[in-house]
Design a protein around this nucleic acid. Sequence first.
DNA 1: AAGGATGGCAACCGCTTTGAG
DNA 2: ACTCAAAGCGGTTGCCATCCT
Length: 327
Amino acid sequence: MGRAPCCDKANVKKGPWSPEEDAKLRVYIEKHGTGGNWISLPQKIGLKRCGKSCRLRWLNYLRPNIKHGGFTEEEDNLICSLYISIGSRWSIIAAQLPGRTDNDIKNYWNTRLKKKLLGKQRKDQQARRGIFPKQEMKKGYENYSANECFSLYPLPPQPVAAQPFSVAYGTQTSSPIKGQESLTGNLIVQFEDIFSYDHQQPNNTRINTSTLYSSDTTFSTCTSLINSTCPPLMSDYYAINGVSADHYFQGTNNILGELDEVLFNGNINPQQLHRTMDMISSNSTSQESCSWGDISSLVYSSSISSYEVFQQKNCSFDDQSRRIGLQ
DNA sequence: AAGGATGGCAACCGCTTTGAG
DNA sequence: ACTCAAAGCGGTTGCCATCCT
């Protein structure tokens, strides 16, 4: 037997709120508060609405001092920084922006900010990196040989990985790291998000997450991005998956460029990210761990970078990967 | 001018977390 | 310690306005 519904779905109005409904809700809450019970509130004021709907309407629209639209450059930067640090935890991000709701920020990110960043990165790509000229990028990474890529962007040395991070990750059929504990996981989520604007598609079309994970090519290239920021892990991945380094490496060059641009334009220093990833892998013997709560208290100061968080808390790679279910 | 495509955003859905009993 | 209802939250949907062809 399932949980009892919070309201009688058949007798509940859905869709946009009328000014009269807004007025009823506003007047009541301003006078009496919610009484700590949203479920019973609509009945008290004669609204044919679900309690959850009333709560949402109040929090996102009727509540005093709510700002809509007109995001400032400072707000943009803060949202980007926080998103890169903590992922899509909109309520936490919203808490850093007075007058903004999580829903508003989420919509703003999905409809504008993400595109703004990706637009910028494409413009700047050629100038900042110059690895693959713009026209050449259109050819797609599969048209480059490993030798060409190596000559343009040499691989760092590849010691044996202490933990086969990417191998475990590669066996997942859906994202294993949406949980809130892992900063590493969050970084990967950002990579996926950026990467799912599939640069290898003919028309640069957006692909959905299920496609991302069901496509061996796309998935392994995404994984290679992680490996390229954690060079020690790369060789293990090649060895165990039995796929040629050519394939991974070509994709990695392009994607890393894109990633750097996103981070750069979001006022996050990409080198810090790379150092962070290096640190995660080099810390694999440390037994000290830190909780997300520990990290978040630092992240929420908004001026501190992911890298600095890891520096201060000395997170263990073992611990992080165990937490996100990779061990 | 028409109608299809796209973008923006409010609202909904359903899963997770919280906390009272 | 456990249960369960309410609240919180993030992802998704659907409507409407605007843009484009």
